[in-house]
Simulated scan of single mutants.
Amino acid sequence: MPKRSLSFLLAAACLVTLMLVPIGAQGVVFTRVFVNGRSVPVTFNDGDSFRVHAGEYRGAQCRLAGFNTLESFGPAHQWGDWHPYELYINAKMATYNGRRGTWHCTTDGSRDGYGRVLMDCPDLATDQIRRGYAHAYQIDDTPSRNYYLRAQQDAIRNRRGMWAHGVPDYVMTSIHSADEDRSREVHYNRLVSVWDAHTESMQHHDTYEECSWVCNDEIRVDMQPVRAAARRLREDAQIAPLVADFFNLHLVEFVRRFRRLGVLPEYVQNPARDLIVRRLERERANGMLGETHTERGACMIHVPFERRYGRNQAACLRGHGTTPGGTGHH
């Protein structure tokens, strides 16, 4: 049997498994979550959000901070050798994984831009990330928690979940067409780093047609000289004391970002910042940071929110959907 045909059969089997999850008398799957120390029933909408059904936050829709699962409204993501439908199944598996555990979350009641209560659930986040059902995610230029990043690198090394058929430098998590808000001068698509989970904006002026695929052209670096340069930062007598609180993966990101864009992350402050920049400028001039090349990274399909669900769902989200090459698989 061809490899990709087998993959589709396995994906279909996973979807059937999701349909066999036990449900309660009301047809609802409840999961026990301890919120601020109190056990409450919740229902998972997808792998990184749930609704609380008892206690102080009863009725609240909650976004689980620090990690992100793929979109589950249809075959919406693609990278590497994945077919979008397979990554759609990965998103569904994240929902199932959330439902079957017992988790511990805290919140101070803060809400995100969509009005959802923000929850911090480290055990759930780590489990989802380690299984390859989610990736670490920050809303700004700061790195994720170290144990989230270690879990993610473990998943990548072992090709679990979403990393089984390719690893982009960035996962595209949202796209915004210019016609969504004509008052904005610049529009953006959100990109989340696989290396340290910081967010970058892919700024543009484009209007996207429904069901069009949007892909990110990544500037890739040669990781061997980048890692060697990171080790030299650790060995530098002036720089080493100033970066003692950073983990090795942070230093690798410093060098990788500098080789790609000529800048350091915003959170690197002086005096370390100036010293690192000067050293990396010298090494770049001497050819010690390796070469770069551009290749297609992660892609995401554009479908307006009102066309993602129900009877009005866009045709490209039905069946196995489409691919960035424009072909359907129904």
Rank of each mutant, 00 (worst) to 15 (best):
V42H: 00
A91Q: 07
G37R: 05
F50T: 02
Q269I: 13
G310T: 03
T142R: 14
L64P: 00
T102S: 13
A272D: 14
T17Q: 14
A272F: 11
Y88V: 05
A136Y: 05
T173Y: 06
R282Q: 12
L275V: 05
L15A: 12
Y147M: 07
R279Y: 07
E253P: 03
D222N: 09
L317N: 02
P168M: 04
T199M: 15
H176A: 11
W163C: 09
D127K: 13
P22D: 00
G109T: 04
R32F: 01
F247E: 14
H83A: 12
P41Q: 01
G325C: 02
R145G: 01
D141I: 06
A134E: 03
A54Q: 10
R318M: 14
L15R: 13
N97T: 13
R231G: 11
E283M: 14
A237G: 05
R308Y: 04
D81H: 04
M223P: 11
V52F: 01
R273P: 09
T294R: 12
R100I: 10
F8R: 04
G132Y: 06
R131K: 15
W163G: 09
F67A: 08
F34M: 10
K3G: 05
E266V: 14
N248K: 08
E180R: 13
C105D: 03
P168H: 01
I175C: 07
A11W: 01
D108H: 02
V221P: 06
P75V: 07
A230E: 08
N189R: 03
A134W: 07
P271Q: 06
A314V: 10
L264K: 01
D48F: 01
L64K: 00
R130K: 14
L9P: 05
H320I: 08
V221R: 06
A25D: 02
D127M: 08
Q61M: 09
L70A: 04
L289E: 04
S201C: 09
L289N: 04
R184H: 14
M162N: 08
F258N: 00
H330Q: 13
I23R: 15
V243A: 00
L317T: 03
H204W: 10
L124E: 01
V194I: 15
F50E: 00
Y96E: 10
R227Q: 14
A13N: 08
I139M: 10
Y147D: 15
A125W: 03
A237F: 10
H320Q: 12
L9Q: 13
A25K: 03
N248Y: 15
H77F: 04
F258G: 01
T126Y: 02
N270V: 07
D140K: 11
A240N: 04
D236N: 15
E306K: 12
N270R: 09
R256N: 04
V29I: 04
G319R: 11
P22N: 00
P2S: 01
F305G: 06
V167F: 07
D196T: 10
R51T: 15
N158W: 06
A94K: 08
R159V: 07
L15G: 09
Q128S: 05
A151S: 15
V255S: 03
V117K: 01
E209H: 12
P324W: 00
T173R: 10
R130I: 09
H187C: 07
A237D: 11
V167D: 06
S177P: 08
E291N: 12
H53S: 03
H83S: 10
L275P: 07
G59C: 04
R257L: 05
H176Y: 14
G310P: 07
F246S: 07
